[in-house]
Write a protein that binds this DNA or RNA. Structure first.
Length: 528
DNA sequence: GAGTATTCACTTAC
DNA sequence: CGTAAGTGAATACT
């Protein structure tokens, strides 16, 4: 997936990835801190606070303005905040819709447009997904005495002038399309839709009767699909049967809260080998013998920092997820509220146990069997699914497989990826203490050969976009946690979900290594 | 209550 | 140093 384009001193796949990871890590931490505060003071906006820290530390990519593609930023990439696009050099202004720069032509210096963020206010203007009609900027001024806004004619200056010049010069303009976030209704998601050219400009009368500039941009052909995927998904959502290659509208037969469609649009295979769909984890011994969990006695909902809430205290005094359910940092274990707690079921300390929240699809890959992907865009830290199956008896792990054929449908927690268990964690930027994330080594092995949930279809990648997190809620035995999968980074719709299967696990130790086909430039060459 | 409008706080680049 | 900019979140209103 991640293709290495070219490297420059200030921007490439690695540095853009690092900036984006750190930005979101800080942003989540700031929201968590803000959540816990009763009296808020100063800047409440976690996104802006995170960006300030990064800028003060010089953690930026592609700081030089440029025309055309930006190293390390793929077409189809998604952003949840405007400021995120500033930090990686995709679109420099924090609020304005048009970015431009002066370019020398012969001896004349002229402003030309570099990139546009289209908020989608005029989305019904055009049917064709390769066309963008964009309104110019300006024409609105604040009256000095009152706070009311006054409409006026737009002028041929700033971004408008730059777009006009770009029409004549024919330079590439990056287009970012803003869409409403369906999960977080107040939020917006920005999709980088690749390069366009300005083809036409005119003026028309706006609502207030004043002149507005209009620009028609056409997408340069031959680029990977981006925005058009969003439009297709929208169609499938309205009518599942319009999904090409659909085999089953819901492979879980209603077991999950959301349907999971089964799709094959590459060959004629009619589906994966038979298995029983089960969304719960089956233990080899009863939960009671594992030590029941002692719940909290909160009245309605558990609050961060509450010393009387035993669940909050088990999590180190804070809630592991932000107010909109995004995991803040990876820990050796997370304690969610469970059946033995007195708090209400809508308590904010119950996230991963509540099942699917993103619309998933099991699909046939080109060369790695069946895989998993999402119709919805996924924000870093979002819960995706549990690894549900049968816990393999500890005695059987590591001994020979009784002549059983090799079972590859296994999750093995003993596989060491590297010595670090961390994800997106940068306490040094906040002058915070680094806590030891890795707890005692788990020996948990889960088989999904006979029964399991969607997680059994998740393939391995050496540069994955998903990681696992142990969670406890229905018992207190730390050696048998639930294994919950979360997004490592923002994942655009229809991108395959993968996690790192790791190396040298006890279960796989005596098996032949499989060749890895993940295609990442960091590929280790083998799985397990 | 959910969905929309308004207000308010805040940042970058002229 | 002021100001504009398809911001984003919290709050006020239907």
């Amino acid at each position: 997936m991640a293709r290495l384009r070219f490297c420059t001193a200030d921007g490439d796949v690695e540095s853009v990835g690092e900036v984006r990871m750190k930005f979101d890590a800080l942003r989540r931490r700031f929201s968590q801190l803000e959540d816990a505060k009763e009296t808020s003071c100063g800047n409440k906006r976690a996104d802006l606070r995170a960006s300030t820290v990064l800028m003060n530390n010089g953690i930026l990519a592609n700081t030089r303005k440029r025309i055309g593609a930006v190293p390390g930023i793929e077409i189809g990439g998604i952003f949840f905040f405007r400021i995120e696009m500033c930090l990686v050099g995709l679109h420099a202004p924090s609020m304005a819709g048009i970015d431009y720069m002066n370019l020398k032509f012969d001896r004349e210096e002229e402003p030309v447009a570099i990139s546009i963020v289209s908020s989608g206010g005029y989305e019904d203007d055009v049917e064709d997904k390769d066309v963008l009609i964009y309104s110019g900027q300006g024409g609105v001024s604040k009256r000095k005495d009152k706070k009311e806004k006054e409409a006026g004619d737009q002028k041929l200056e700033r971004g408008n002038l730059a777009l006009e010049r770009s029409l004549h010069r024919g330079n590439e303009v990056r287009i970012i399309r803003g869409m409403r976030d369906l999960v977080n209704v107040t939020g917006k998601i920005y999709v980088y839709d690749g390069l366009y050219r300005v083809h036409e400009s005119w003026t028309e009368k706006g609502k207030s009767g004043c002149n507005v500039f209009k620009y028609k941009l056409l997408r340069i052909p031959g680029q990977p699909e981006a925005f058009v995927i969003w439009k297709s998904v929208q169609q499938w959502r309205d009518n599942v049967s319009s999904r090409p290659g659909l085999i089953l509208p819901d492979l879980t037969s209603g077991a999950e809260k959301l349907p999971v469609s089964l799709v094959n649009d590459v060959d004629y295979e009619k589906g994966p080998a038979h298995f029983t769909y089960s969304r719960t984890l089956k233990y080899s011994k009863p939960i009671k013998s594992m030590g029941p969990s002692v719940g909290c006695s909160c009245q309605s909902t558990c609050l961060p920092g509450d010393p009387h809430c035993s669940c909050v205290m088990k999590n180190g005094g804070s809630l592991p997820h932000t107010a909109n359910g995004v995991l803040v940092v990876r820990k050796h274990v997370i304690h969610e509220c469970g059946p033995s707690c007195k708090c209400y079921p809508n308590c904010r300390n119950q996230v991963s146990q509540n099942g699917l929240r993103v619309r998933l699809e099991v699909f046939k890959t080109n060369d790695r069997g069946w895989g998993l992907r999402s119709w919805d865009p996924i924000c870093a830290g979002t819960f995706i699914c549990e690894y549900a199956g049968e816990v393999v008896d500890e005695v059987k792990v590591g001994v020979d497989m009784d002549g059983d054929e090799e079972n590859e449908y296994v999750f093995d927690s003993t596989c060491d990826i590297d010595d670090s268990f961390e994800w997106n964690y940068a306490p040094e930027l906040l002058d915070e203490e680094r806590h030891e994330a890795r707890g005692p080594q788990l020996s948990l092995v889960i088989s999904v050969k006979h029964s399991g949930n969607v997680a059994r279809f998740m393939n391995h990648s050496c540069s994955p976009n998903v990681f696992w997190q142990p969670v406890l809620y229905d018992h207190s035995d730390e050696s048998f946690p639930h294994i919950m999968f979360y997004a490592m980074k923002h994942i655009p719709p229809m991108t395959e979900l993968t996690y790192d299967y790791g190396l040298c696990g006890t279960y796989f130790r005596n098996m032949q290594r499989r060749v890895c086909l993940c295609g990442s430039y960091k590929c280790r060459g083998f799985i397990h």
